[in-house]
Design a protein around this nucleic acid. Structure first.
Length: 441
DNA sequence: GTTGAGCGTT
């Protein structure tokens, strides 16, 4: 923006951003070459942030920074100037003074992360041959594993389940966000019942209305990734003029609701996906309540998004998976719990299919974007989803049964994508995932 | 020796 003569001398212009007006906590954040700052860049430093403001030296009032298309625009043609910019967080993000406090912000964040995030996770349906070592090795692909407990009876024989704990919330979320095939068995990883708290459910998924037919899932992902890590995108096919984008961080999702965005030259409306959670006693959600017309966002999505009741299982299923995502996010320093949401998701037997491999149109490799935020650098999956099963080479994939990702062997014998299902998860019984673990024994 | 929904001190 504008003509800053020395603008290109440095690689990036940095502006000071703080969580509050105490600039001792400030972080210098790089702008883009056009003078804007990507919201995603900001979020990388201040997870959950949804904007910027600064105190105007004359008026003494705080002024908001313009945000459009994921870019924060400098307050004037003169650029960002020397102001201290202050992060704006969603109101619901109860980032109060006691949370921001005097002490080192980073340290604080760490502490918060620890407190809010990591929970033991129960692993159900482990292969009999599982050992502490093997299970640890398997889950280390999601991050550091700090605890493994396999449950055994008095005789010492393995009971088929156990608990693990990750070092970081991000790792935990990664593990919760997908299903796990270990030695040909679908292993359920969930927040233990004992850890469920009463938690506000925070949808990670947004409804994107007024999509045009040329908008692919990739397009939506590419676009929305600037706001935060996108864990899933769903675009119904045949074309239905809407889509869903799921973020790892529910705050990001929330912050986008109500906004219009321009993608591929068309204005789309982002609104709350607002899925209704059905109790687990009633697994038949797909028969009611879902589909655009039942979404808060459906209305604004208006033309073209009217749900035709007949084909709503796609949306429905995806919703169950992702609408209420294992809430989570980047090393979180927002006040959100994980338990219920993730638990709800997992307990429906869905474990989330974010990592849906193979021909799923949901999986596009690890979250893109710069920093590799939240994803370990060491054991990524590359562009093709989870590691191919191999008898020997892949940690955690030892053993020998069928049902590996590459073969597309989903529990119900239904594959994702490729069949007009729009890449949806297998339909059918929502409890179907767990009941088809046959390979073993 | 077997098994396959569940919820943790051993």
């Amino acid at each position: 923006m504008s003509n800053k003569s020395n603008y290109n001398e440095d690689l990036f212009e940095y502006i000071k951003v703080s969580e509050d007006e105490d600039d001792s906590n400030a972080v210098e954040i790089p702008c883009e070459h056009d003078g804007t700052m990507l919201l995603s860049t900001l979020v990388a430093q201040f997870p959950g942030a949804c904007g910027l403001k600064y105190r105007h030296p004359d008026s003494k009032a705080t002024r908001g920074i313009r945000l459009s298309d994921g870019k924060l625009h400098p307050p004037s043609d003169a650029g960002w100037g020397k102001h201290l910019y202050i992060c704006v967080f969603p109101k619901e993000n109860k980032r109060k003074m006691e949370d921001v406090s005097p002490e080192n912000s980073a340290a604080k964040t760490k502490r918060l992360e620890k407190k809010l995030t990591c929970s033991d996770l129960i692993c159900l349906g482990l292969p009999w041959k599982t050992t502490e070592e093997s299970i640890k090795q398997y889950f280390e692909q999601f991050g550091e594993v700090v605890m493994v407990q396999l449950k055994r009876d008095k005789n010492g024989s393995f009971k088929g389940f156990g608990f693990i704990r990750f070092a970081t919330y991000a790792s935990q979320m990664r593990a919760l966000a997908q299903r796990h095939n270990i030695d040909g068995r679908w292993v359920d990883v969930r927040i233990p019942n004992s850890k469920e708290g009463v938690v506000p459910q925070m949808p990670c998924k947004v409804f994107v209305g007024r999509c045009t037919e040329d908008m692919t899932a990739d397009d939506l992902r590419d676009y929305f990734s600037r706001f935060g890590e996108v864990t899933d995108v769903f675009v119904p096919r045949p074309f239905r003029a809407f889509g869903f984008v799921t973020f790892l961080d529910p705050e990001v999702a929330q912050s986008l609701c109500g906004e219009d965005h321009v993608i591929k030259g068309a204005s789309v409306s982002v609104s709350s996906a607002a899925p209704k959670i059905k109790s687990k006693s009633n697994p038949n959600w797909k028969d009611d309540s879902y589909g655009p017309s039942n979404w808060e966002g459906g209305r604004s999505g208006s033309s073209g998004s009217g749900g035709n009741g007949s084909n709503n299982n796609i949306d429905t299923l995806n919703m169950q998976n992702l609408g209420i995502n294992p809430n989570g996010g980047p090393p979180a320093n927002f006040n959100l719990p994980i338990s219920l949401v993730a638990a709800a998701l997992n307990q429906a037997g869905w474990g989330g299919f974010l990592g849906g491999p193979g021909n799923s149109n949901n999986w596009q490799g690890p979250p893109q974007g710069n920093s590799g935020k939240g994803w370990n650098n060491n054991q990524n999956w590359g562009q093709n989803g989870p590691p191919a099963w191999s008898q020997s080479s892949n940690p955690g994939w030892s053993g020998s049964k069928s049902g590996n990702w590459n073969q597309g062997n989903w529990p119900n014998g239904q594959n994702w994508g490729g069949n007009g299902g729009g890449g949806s998860a297998p339909s059918g019984s929502s409890s179907g995932w767990n009941n088809n673990n046959k390979p073993q024994t």
